[in-house]
Design a protein around this nucleic acid. Structure first.
Ligand SMILES: [Mn+2]
Ligand SMILES: [Mn+2]
Ligand SMILES: [Mn+2]
Ligand SMILES: [Mn+2]
Lengths: 222, 222
DNA sequence: CTATAAAATAAGGCTAACCATAACATTTTT
DNA sequence: AAAAATGTTATGGTTAGCCTTATTTTATAG
């Protein structure tokens, strides 16, 4: 019954599932990509997670989290985002590095430490990448935003969150001032999956579609 | 040349070696006890550590750290003790739990995080268990104290450090106010490895020899 | 110097996560 | 309906860390 200690790998699979698509089914090869393993390895792991009652897999349809799995996953998210706040606000670690470091610490954090950290930080509601921090009971309101990649030429929007995880991608975005809170305007959308041209604070930047997928925005004016 | 990422297990073996006896040789079965593994497993691990140039093992004489191994070990100590300070002073985690929690976090802490944490904490010199915190370059002055088990009846001493690691042992000591900074007097030393009777702050406590070994004191008056 | 205790090694096993390569099943596209 | 693309499974590996049981080697105490 009690959720005994889950391995780092297990926690990363579960977290990847909420990050990729909360509640919807995820194809196993998508999980594999996100986690940097082969589809065969991801299938093996999904079988193990299934045996532990953390996920359910319908072949050719996808995997999703069970109640138990989702609880564990959301708890990992909580730990990760609390550490992100600490690393950013208190340790003054560079924004583009905090995800990576928090992603290590999250697996080494006991419940008592998690709750003490939350209290120390003043129960923050948002992490530096713009995402909501789940409460102790697992509740959190997902962002009501759309991907930057869905905007059309001329649209104006405010950046809500940046969901990239790779440090180099985060650094690339940080250098271009594509950060939570910033406002932007879509100057042009190139055809054929081409790049977006953006104006962010009087600065013009081109951004590939795959990177734009990571940026969650709220439309201000279309 | 560069010390790439060492596994948690590797770091724990190295740390155990400095904790058990800095610079002196350690018998492999002593390491095994400290780490809670069988002597066979410890021997296997020592072989692997030897292959990586972290330790050198002379059969029937003992193991010791190489320069490279000691550097890595001391760095683990630094991380551990910095986290202990954070957990104790900022998160207000109960004293008897901080070793255990810091012992998880230490392996998940990148150099940049370690240094930022040290700066945040104001470069503390001592951890809540009384031990010195090694500097970035690995330097630290070991405590010049003796084990509480070496005291004689009538001796007065001040507790410098408590080197226990098991949470239940730490809790036992905490309950009896056997903490760094406290002063005590040895009321009686029972013969045949028997317990010590101590007076700690007007309170009389009996303490087994094996626990007394964990307590490092400075003799005030004999 | 020999008996005993302690340390080490040999041998065989286990599990969690990974890998590659190949075969197979299903869905999607044409 | 067939072809192509995608997802899954089968098979056989690897590595790090653990385990047990049995044997061998060395140190040490009498
Ligand atoms: Mn992680
Ligand atoms: Mn540890
Ligand atoms: Mn073997
Ligand atoms: Mn197999």
């Amino acid at each position: 019954m009690t959720v005994r200690h889950l391995s780092e790998s297990t926690e990363m699979y579960l977290k990847a599932m909420v990050e990729l698509s909360d509640h919807e089914m995820v194809m196993v090869p998508r999980l594999a990509e996100r986690l940097g393993v082969t589809p065969v390895s991801a299938n093996e792991m999904v079988r193990r997670l299934g045996e532990q009652g953390l996920v359910s897999h319908t072949p050719y349809k996808g995997v999703n989290l069970t109640k138990k799995g989702r609880e564990a996953a959301v708890n990992v998210l909580r730990r990760q985002r609390l550490w992100e706040v600490f690393l950013h606000d208190h340790l003054k670690i560079e924004w583009s590095h905090i995800y990576e470091y928090a992603c290590s610490l999250e697996h080494a954090t006991a419940p008592e430490v998690t709750e003490a950290l939350a209290a120390f930080l003043g129960d923050p509601k948002t992490c530096p990448r713009g995402n909501p921090i789940p409460a102790t009971d697992g509740s959190f309101k997902p962002l009501e935003g759309i991907s930057l990649g869905e905007l059309k030429t001329g649209d104006k929007a405010r950046i809500l969150a940046v969901n990239a995880t790779a440090t180099d991608v985060l650094q690339y975005l940080q250098e271009r001032d594509i950060l939570p809170g910033r406002e932007l305007r879509v100057v042009e959308v190139a055809p054929l999956q081409g790049p977006l041209t953006l104006e962010v604070g009087s600065r013009i930047t081109a951004l590939g579609l795959s990177m734009a997928e990571f940026v969650i925005v709220k439309l201000i004016k279309s």
